[in-house]
Each structure stands twice: as structure tokens, then as C-alpha cells.
Nucleic acid binder design. Structure first.
Lengths: 332, 332
DNA sequence: CGCGGCAGTACCGGATGTTAT
DNA sequence: AATAACATCCGGTACTGCCGC
């Protein structure tokens, strides 16, 4: 047993045709008669034939693989795992493999990148040496969210409409009775934080209000959140609060409780980025489902729709976060 | 420009030797003189030569890649992302690529798996069709935690000593003044939950106590945790509580507060699996750092140390979770 | 005559251009 | 004008054998 894996030779022999004919039939290219094609296909199925990918790559210089680069550092966020499997599942449907790329140090001895047809990156910035190396390969790159500093070098992107989302959230809070909405925002440095800050300020200004906001770290500590929220509640008369950075819902909730506020009734609280635990808090916290899986899948679909020149008709696709309303914004 | 990628031919020509000699020199195999070897290496470096992986694979039937299979469903847990990058970074050091494998449905039309030299799986069970397909390839498989139902088909494993860890935690609670320790445990179905349950019962029995435990889901809802914790606190006189399933710390904390307990002083609370948010809760919750990254790296190292027969001298490596003591187990 | 060092060359498994039918 | 057989090539690896000492 242990019969060697069947090759194109074997299939051709079994079907009684030449290798070339078999090759054509299997990729159903023109040039073989329907009967021959069927015979070949039948033989292939019977033998459990699978094309040898490396052999094909050798000739075609295509590898059937895409490199996936997740941001270094913040990989703990569940968002990225979901995103990754969105990419993987979509790739699977197209017969592509996903290679998870390592985070290299700035000094790049090795060429960073292997044999892939292109890359998918997410929340990237050209300040990252890994991203620069990827851009320098010249192979097509698809990004989730815009790549700061990578303008014009990205073949396609899938981005969120944070402006529309945040406005929808602000309207939601207003409908639930909020009149003075404060925000705890992430620091400048990503496309996301810029859009969030700009939208918040604009929305407040449009209504003649005054913005009440504090800025904390991208991945904040409990103390940071506590301090920011505590400060807002102590110095301003607010009835709703939006917290941006991932992981800040729990400490914000806690700070609000310690300030004697009833979250969900006399203080509405919403987080921007949904996390599994938001449903487990008391009260459960309203936030945006960023549909990470769909975004990952959309990135890969954009990749496969690139033509050989690496261009596409619609280079930027927009996704809308989905608001999950929970008890923390129930209103009185 | 766009000079075609240099091949072994080019390197050989530049060094003035035959292709075969160049090939040998680059893999420093015996049979070439040191001077020749150096000339070849110099030429290769000068030309920025990189071996064409698919071409090599064609001849050697080795692919320089490992497939990584993460558990379906529970991929939201940050643990797995960390684990994955432990594998990826270690693979990078060995010049290997990591292919993130898709979760296929039970009906397996395609052969699930591409051209890889072996697999790394984590928290796997043979009940999973994807795992079965992987085992059936006959290629070496390294697992983190034992594979339920995969006994004897795993080339190497990296497992936690949950027994020692849980005992250490129980001792810790005891030192901090606990006398009656209850546990909220995961359901049977993984090696982890079995070990946890057995150890808890044994430890209590050794001290002549009576176990106080409840079982909830692997990925519980807030209500489940609330109910279990509330029930324990209402019916038993306990002064410490250990919660197993990931994500249950926050709701447990909440339930304890609602029961009028002071967590950290009159009730000690510890979670088993550490999560980033544990440090953000009030009080911060003691739990085990499962050193996911190291475990991932250890799996890959075990993989590369397999000989060609797919066996290794020490097939099971044991890791010890690291207790992170926080305010929730401060004691009075 | 044995041996180290290297060149020559037959593959690995498919894709594709060219030539017969 | 369609099909199919034949010959090459993709970039390496590994085996054989020649060469000179």
C-alpha cells in the first residue's frame, strides 16, 4: 500500500490520453473534446488526484497563498482572531492558503516574506518595518482600514464608516434621553482615532454643544480609564459617555458606579468596540459589532478580484459597524 | 530593471562553478572545498539569491510549512492568538511558514490540507472532523494539551500541569485565610476540565473537606455564572471561590457584590484562565497566566526536533501556569 | 589505484508552445 | 480548423562518473 500520490501522469495514463490533454482537461481550458475531458475528470476522481501545488508554482510563478500580517503588540484583541478566520475561510473557498506572517524586528536580515501571491494587512501603518517590507515586495496588498503612510501603494481596502457609525450611536443616545454626551477617545496615530475624534467634535459642534472628552491609551490600564471617567463625572454634568479604546468598558462601568451613577438610567454608557465580555457585565454594555469576520472575508474577496495588473475597479469598500444595544443605554 | 529573481544558475555562473557545486555549497554539504564554498556564498549574497521554495519542494517533498489548526468556535479567546504567534515566531526562526488552516464542515469534499510537513493543533478532540482529517494524513502532529481520542497518533505534545497549578492556587487561597473553597467548573469534554475537577475534588478530600462546586458552560453566559455563583453563596458558607471557564470572572465578581460580599477580603476570588481584562476589574482578579506564547513556541520546537520517522525522545513536555496574584485574593 | 572535488545530467510534477494528425 | 502527442521549461536536488593527484 502507501501507493505514491497519483500524478498527472497517472491520470493521463488511466484516461488513455497525453499529459498535456489531461492538464488541459483538469483546468477545463479549451482544446479538449468534451468526451476526453470527462474521461480525464473521471480518472482523476477515481485516483483521488490532487494537483501538486509546488510543481504548478514552479511553472506559473503563482503560489496559491496570501500572507496575512496582523498588527504587532495588539494581537491579544479578539478582533484580530475573528478577522484572521474571515480571511482564512474566504481563502479556503477560493483554494488559497493563508500564511500567518511573523513580526520581524526593524533590522530585517531575511526578506520577511516567502512565496505568496500577495498580502492582507489590517490596522497597519508604514511606521511598522514589517509593513514597509511588505509594500516593498511590489506584490498586491489589500488592507482593512487605511494604511497610514501607505497611500497609493495599496491595491484595495476595506474600511469602516466610523463617521456614520459614531453619528448613529450619538443619535441613539440622544433618543434615549442623553443631552450631554462625553467621550473617552484613543490617542492619535490610527485612522480610526482620527475619524472618531473628528466626528465627535463635529457632531457636538453641529448642535452648538461643547465637546467633553479625554484621551487615553490605545490599550489602556484600568487606572487610566478610572482617572479619565472619574474626572469627567466629577467636573462635568454629563448624562452619557462613550468609551473608545478596547477594554475600557469594565473599568468605566466601575468608575461610574463609584461616582454614584446608575448606568443605564441616569448615565448611559456605550463602548465603541464590542467584546465578548460586554454581554457579561452588569449592566451589559452597548457597543459596535465590527463584524471582523466579514471584513476579513471582504479583504480576501477583494484580493481575488484583483486582475493581473493588481488593480481593481472599486478599490475601497466601506463596511458599517452594527450597533448592539444593551442595558447600559436603556434610558430611564 | 525588474531583473528576474536570481536562480541557482546565476549564482553558479557568477561563482564560476557548476550548479551542483553551488547547490551543495549553499546547503553546506560535504563535497566542496572551503574556497569554492565561500565563493558561492559570496556570489549568492551579492546577487541577493533566495532559494525557490516550491522548486526545492518538488524534489524533496518537504514544504517548509506547518499547518496550524485552532479550535473552531472558541477562537475569540485571546489565548489562541497569542498561541498562534508563539508558533509563528518560532517557525520563523527555523525558516518555516505557518499556514492557518480553515475549519471545514464535517462533509469533507476537499482533502482539508495542503502541502505542509506537519501540523500543530491545540485543545483538539478527535470529535472534530478537521482534527480527524489531520490525523489521517499520517503526517506528524504536535498538540498543545492532549488530544482526546487521538492517543498514540500524536508525535509530541506540550501540556499543562493543571494539577500542580490548581493545587498551588488552593494553597495560595489557604495561606490568605480561606477555609472553605468552592469551585465553578467547566463541563466534561476536555482534558483540562477533567484534570481541574479531579484535582479540586482530590485536594478537598485530602483535607477531609466537602467539595462545593457547580458546572457551567465552556463559554458561559453572564446568567449562567450569576446563577452558579449566586447559588453557591446563598446556600453554602464559603470564603473563597475559583471560577474555571474563560470569561466568568466579571460576572462572578458582580454576583458576589450583589450577594453583599467584599471580594478580596471576606470572599477571595480567583479565575483559572487569565485574561487581559482581569487587571481592569475592581478588584483586579487573580488568575493563571497560561503563557500561551511560550506554549506555542514549544510546540513548534517539538515539531522541528522530530526525526524523519516522526518520533522524538521526549514526546510530552509539561508547562506550569504562572499564578498572577491580584487584589481579589488579598485576604483580610 | 583510491579518493576528494566538481561537472554533467536525470529527475521531481505540472504548464505551455510547437508540431503532427 | 479542431485535437492530441511531443518537447521544453520552471528551479532545485541528488546520483553518476570523470578528472587529476
Amino acid at each position: 500500500m502507501t501507493a505514491r500520490k497519483p500524478t498527472l501522469h497517472d491520470v493521463a495514463a488511466a484516461a488513455g490520453v497525453s499529459i498535456a490533454a489531461a492538464s488541459f482537461a483538469l483546468r477545463d481550458k479549451a482544446g479538449v473534446s468534451p468526451e476526453t475531458r470527462d474521461r480525464v475528470l473521471a480518472a482523476a476522481r477515481r485516483l483521488n488526484y490532487i494537483a501538486n501545488v509546488p510543481a504548478r508554482s514552479l511553472r506559473t510563478a503563482r503560489y496559491g497563498a496570501v500572507g496575512l500580517y496582523l498588527p504587532p503588540g495588539s494581537t491579544r484583541l479578539p478582533y484580530y482572531t475573528e478577522f484572521a478566520f474571515g480571511v482564512v475561510d474566504a481563502a479556503d473557498r477560493h483554494g488559497l492558503s493563508v500564511i500567518l506572517l511573523p513580526h520581524r524586528d526593524a533590522d530585517d536580515p531575511a526578506p520577511t516574506t516567502a512565496f505568496v501571491d500577495g498580502y492582507v494587512v489590517v490596522d497597519a501603518t508604514a511606521a511598522d518595518a514589517g509593513i514597509r517590507a511588505i509594500l516593498d515586495t511590489g506584490r498586491p496588498v489589500v488592507s482593512a482600514e487605511h494604511v497610514l503612510g501607505g497611500e497609493g501603494r495599496i491595491a484595495a481596502s476595506v474600511v469602516y464608516d466610523h463617521d456614520a457609525a459614531l453619528r448613529a450611536l450619538l443619535e441613539h443616545l440622544t433618543r434615549r434621553g442623553a443631552t450631554r454626551i462625553a467621550a473617552v477617545l484613543p490617542p492619535d496615530g490610527t485612522a480610526w482615532s482620527r475619524e472618531l475624534t473628528a466626528t465627535y467634535d463635529a457632531w457636538i459642534a453641529e448642535r452648538g454643544g461643547i465637546p467633553i472628552s479625554r484621551t487615553i491609551s490605545f490599550i489602556p490600564t484600568a487606572d487610566e480609564v478610572d482617572a479619565a471617567v472619574g474626572d469627567i463625572l466629577a467636573t462635568e454634568r454629563v448624562d452619557a459617555l462613550i468609551v473608545g479604546p478596547s477594554g475600557s468598558a469594565a473599568p468605566a462601568l466601575d468608575a461610574a458606579h463609584r461616582a454614584g451613577r446608575q448606568v443605564g438610567s441616569d448615565l448611559l454608557l456605550a463602548a465603541y468596540v464590542d467584546e465578548p465580555m460586554h454581554g457579561l457585565l452588569a449592566p451589559a454594555v452597548t457597543s459596535f459589532d465590527l463584524v471582523a469576520r466579514e471584513v476579513g472575508a471582504a479583504c480576501l474577496e477583494a484580493f481575488v478580484s484583483l486582475d493581473d495588473a493588481g488593480t481593481v475597479t472599486d478599490p475601497v469598500q466601506v463596511m458599517l459597524p452594527r450597533l448592539i444595544v444593551r442595558a447600559s443605554t436603556a434610558g430611564r
